[in-house]
Write a protein that binds this DNA or RNA. Structure first.
Lengths: 198, 198
DNA sequence: CCTACCGATCGGTAGG
DNA sequence: CCTACCGATCGGTAGG
């Protein structure tokens, strides 16, 4: 069985989770039925439960797995011995990398986490708040030492954060745009602004 | 009856629509039941149908009303005899104004339009594409005449667009932040960038 | 992995 | 505006 998995590369559970992420992205978590999902993996709805515990468990796995990806990226960035501007650039790169690497999963994570029930909802919110605080601390560091303009750190955090959300709706692997090209465009806009200096 | 409405200021239909927008924002369109909505306006579910045609009709009204607000704003901006940079600033102000004026309605519009059925879904997409194209044309104008950096117009459009989406999640009238303060922060970041020029 | 089926809930209608 | 109710569909279980 382990052999079989390692040949195919993916367990049935993983296949179900990936199909679910696609449906969650297309129709939303609530509008996705277990029968939709079953059909997508050529199973009857009841058979899904041999591989997963519940519909919400799938969502939970997606949300926390992506939360962890962001937090691991943050960890690395924090350890950089570099100016705040380089750290923020690295975080922009991180967001784009995650978005383009596994866009369906990250979209479900981003848009559907509110359908988590307690206590997972609170756990998730805490995870997210933690990430945001660390991001904001880097922005504040840059403002303090004069690298950044003296903008409101919270508004700046959220504007940067949000500014890449369109990738979740728009990006498909078929679009032959490299993460690096996107990074170039987005980081220039956010760091230097749209307007040409005279 | 007309008198009664003009004293209260709002028709029952409007009250239902506003309650629905709040629920759509909190739980999403699909997860909002007509029984939830009925309870919120102190009615039985069946009685809602004396004021509205269907659940989707409510969503439809919200989506197209907000679409119109954006398009009317765009109309005004296009008629400005001003450099592209002023037009983009005016559009940023427009997005912030709409977001803070009626945040529940605009959030439902933004997040739930995909639950529209045909032919409304196609109509909506066209309305939106039209708005985006006009926004992009202004960006291209600014690039052409050297006001803006030579970034990719599409990526620029979407990054600016997206960058204000956090207001839909975060903003509440109770937060005593003025649209003008938000405009100051966001437009500075997008137009001039986060980094301090030396 | 399937068939058969559960109680709950959905959007909406009939009729008064 | 309500009570009563419709068929459809939901997430999930039993049992093999």
């Amino acid at each position: 069985m382990i052999l079989e998995q390692s040949i195919k590369g993916k367990s049935k559970k993983q296949l179900i989770s990936e199909a679910a992420a696609q449906l969650f992205r297309d129709k939303g978590y609530t509008a996705t039925s277990m029968r939709d999902l079953a059909e997508k993996v050529n199973l009857k709805a009841s058979s899904l439960y041999n591989h997963i515990g519940s519909k919400e468990e799938i969502l939970r796995d997606i949300c926390f797995a992506n939360g962890q990806r962001f937090n691991e990226g943050m960890e690395e960035v924090e350890q950089l011995h570099a100016p705040a501007v380089e750290k923020v650039r690295a975080l922009i790169r991180l967001h784009i990398q995650i978005a383009t690497e596994d866009v369906t999963s990250v979209t479900a994570f981003n848009d559907e986490w509110r359908h988590l029930s307690e206590p997972y909802l609170s756990d998730f919110r805490q995870l997210r708040r933690n990430y945001e605080r660390r991001f904001q601390a880097i922005i504040e560091e840059g403002i303090r030492n004069g690298e950044f303009k003296a903008l409101d750190p919270f508004a700046t955090l959220y504007t940067i954060f949000s500014s890449m959300r369109w990738l979740y709706d728009w990006y498909k692997p078929e679009r032959k745009v490299s993460p690096e090209q996107l990074y170039e465009q987005i980081s220039t806009l956010l760091m230097s602004g749209l307007v040409n200096e005279k």
